[in-house]
Design a protein around this nucleic acid. Structure first.
Length: 564
RNA sequence: GGGCUCGUGGCUUAGCCUGGAUAUAGCGCCGGGCUUCUAACCCGGAUGUCGAGGGUUCGAAUCCCUCCGGGCCCGCCA
């Protein structure tokens, strides 16, 4: 509904601008604490027309023609600003449309296909707290884009040809695999031991190189070994992802592009470029004209391919299958991804949109699976769940064990996801255990609680025989009611912005504001205990809030409980 | 050394791309509110040279330059 209001304001304003003889494409419309939408267009035109912003705004204002029965009730001058306000019709239609659309409320018109690649951690150990920043950002973006109308397929790109996985394969033949551990953790143990030994005894390194070359050449035996190693680790990784309510539609192995010959094809195309030169037996692409000083190696001197070469084929393959390609990558991929984009551009291919997130480090420094220095996602969730259980046990001492466990589970997953997604991806963070297990801050439980509270009111309303099948929305006049309707109407605008800018934190912030606005309504406006004539409309508004809260939580991949 | 990026109350953080009306919110701190629909809540208060300096502009947290501090990266790893 908000987008319709915005469209109407835009159309009214551009007509007024044209009517007063000015010309501009920029309506300078934005949200404001003083209005539902405000325009500072007077400022924009001031220098062009050599008049004061106020004088320009006044002329435009005089030409504003509001339409009867529209979503805009009035426009006001406030100094050089022109403010627009929502009408009763807008409020009433918002309430009705939310009740009608239910779980589809906030979903936008159909758009094209998106392939979104996220997580893609190497199968050499469990996901750690850095990886899950990728997973949570990626999964949330996928959910946002789905709501924005895209047909989204998520992919996990498995690097099965890199050195690390060869080390794992070698390690499995030389070290004990601990069957008692979760599989990805047992793989990590083997990987860590193998790396230690490789540092200590250099002679093992040629063995690893040999394994890599063998795998690139292919063959049943070597592929079987890799498959076992990868499948074992991926089983554990998938388990962790599922626990966090994260799902991938496809798992794509980079080796398939080598086997299919696509890597050779693209290498030949790159080699044919004038900018590609042979240096010390390796093929290197010059990208200086793209603003990248470092040239890119696409083929080793031994003839084998590199990560970027295979990634090039992967992206070429994706290009034909979607309208938008989105990759979620860690900050260490900044250079390599800009090189990838540059080469794709030179080849005349579509470039991916890349969302870079900064590192999560430990107080003592950066994490490393290879060195065994990391906090796994499993460990984090276990600890957060433990802390959540303590809180639940204190707050709900009379509830049965099963209920408390269930609540602790969804509260902890919500808290972990929310804590990650609320922060802008470009912010580097340092992990802090005290922060991680703190439930006092206004995070996911706050929003989940608001949803549970709304459910409870609706249930009580039903028990009291109050129905919102038939209600008069005009009776919703309290400031908290209006504020709540406005906030709910903003959801589609939030989805629209977040999907355009690929910023999941916009949705996280909105979710918190929505819960906040609902709580204020709850505190000041009685529903069940109100005078009978108010009950149906207010209960309807609670249902709208419940729907909005459920839909935002769903977009964040966080469970919306009926009680907690 | 070069490139990219971040720096906003004690702590965490929004806004920055697309400059505009008193800089967002939480934690913590101070004070108030449960015989009332779930108090994991609500209300009020204190706390800011928006890293520093310069520039552009009618107007800068936002754009440009320099510097300082943190993070990431820098040709045959991924």
């Amino acid at each position: 509904m908000f987008l319709k209001f915005k469209d109407e304001v835009s159309s009214i304003l551009s007509d007024a601008i044209a009517g007063s003889g000015f010309q501009t494409d920029d309506l300078a419309l934005g949200e404001s604490p003083h209005a539902d939408l405000a325009s500072s267009v007077g400022f924009k035109l001031a220098s062009k027309y050599k008049q004061s912003p106020k004088a320009i705004s006044e002329k435009i204002y005089e030409n504003i023609k509001l339409r009867t029965g529209s979503y805009v009730t009035r426009a006001e001058m406030a100094g050089p600003y022109i403010n627009f306000f929502m009408s009763r019709t807008f409020f009433n239609e918002t309430v009705r449309s939310v009740l009608f659309e239910k779980e589809n409320f906030g979903s936008l018109d159909k758009k094209g296909k998106v392939i979104l690649e996220h997580t893609s951690a190497n199968p050499d150990g469990p996901l750690h707290i850095g990886h899950i920043r990728n997973s949570v950002i990626g999964d949330t973006l996928a959910r946002i884009l789905k709501r924005a109308g895209y047909d989204v397929k998520t992919q996990y790109y498995i690097n099965d040809m890199g050195r690390q996985i060869a080390v794992v394969v070698w390690g499995l033949e030389n070290f004990k695999f601990d069957e008692t551990k979760k599989k990805d953790h047992a793989i990590a143990e083997v990987y860590i031991n193998a790396n230690k030994s490789l540092v200590d005894e250099k002679e093992h390194s040629p063995e690893v190189d040999g394994i890599m070359k063998k795998y690139e050449a292919g063959g049943t035996e070597i592929e079987g070994k890799f498959n076992r190693a990868i499948d074992t680790c991926m089983e554990g990784i998938k388990e962790s992802l599922t626990r966090m309510n994260i799902h991938h539609d496809e798992f794509i192995r980079e080796s398939r592009f080598v086997r299919s010959g696509e890597v050779n094809l693209i290498m030949d195309r790159v080699k044919a470029l004038d900018r590609t030169a042979l240096k010390d037996g390796a093929f290197m692409v010059d990208l200086k004209d793209a603003g990248i000083q470092k040239s890119l190696v696409i083929q080793r001197s031994d003839g084998t391919s590199l990560y970027t070469t295979r990634d090039l084929s992967y992206h070429e393959w994706k290009t034909t299958r979607c309208d938008r390609m989105i990759d979620i990558l860690g900050a260490d991929h900044k250079l390599i991804s800009s090189q990838l984009k540059a080469v794709l551009r030179i080849l005349g291919s579509k470039e991916p949109e890349i969302v870079i997130f900064e590192f999560v480090s430990l107080p003592e420094g950066s994490m490393s699976t290879r060195r065994g220095v990391f906090i796994s996602a499993d460990e984090l969730i276990d600890e957060v769940e433990k802390a959540a259980y303590e809180v639940v046990d204190k707050k709900l001492p009379d509830r049965d064990e099963e209920f408390k466990r269930k609540v602790a589970k969804f509260v902890s997953i919500g808290a972990v996801r929310y804590d990650i997604v609320r922060i802008s991806p470009e912010k580097a963070t340092t992990f802090d255990w005290k922060e991680a297990v703190d439930f006092e801050k206004q995070g996911a439980p706050f929003i989940q609680y608001a949803h549970a509270r709304a459910c409870s009111i609706i249930k009580n309303g039903k028990d009291e025989g109050i129905s919102f099948e038939d209600f008069d929305p005009n009776i919703l006049l309290e400031s908290q009611e209006i504020a709540l309707i406005k906030k709910i109407s903003l959801f589609e605008n939030v989805i629209d912005n977040a999907s355009r800018e690929l910023k999941p934190n916009i949705v996280a912030i909105y979710a918190r504001e929505l819960a906040d606005t609902f709580n204020q309504f709850y505190r000041f406006v009685p529903v069940i205990t109100a005078e009978p004539e108010f009950r149906p409309a207010r209960l309807a508004l609670v249902e709208c809030s419940r729907i909005a809260l459920a839909n935002v939580l769903d977009t964040l991949g966080i469970f919306a409980p009926e009680s907690m």
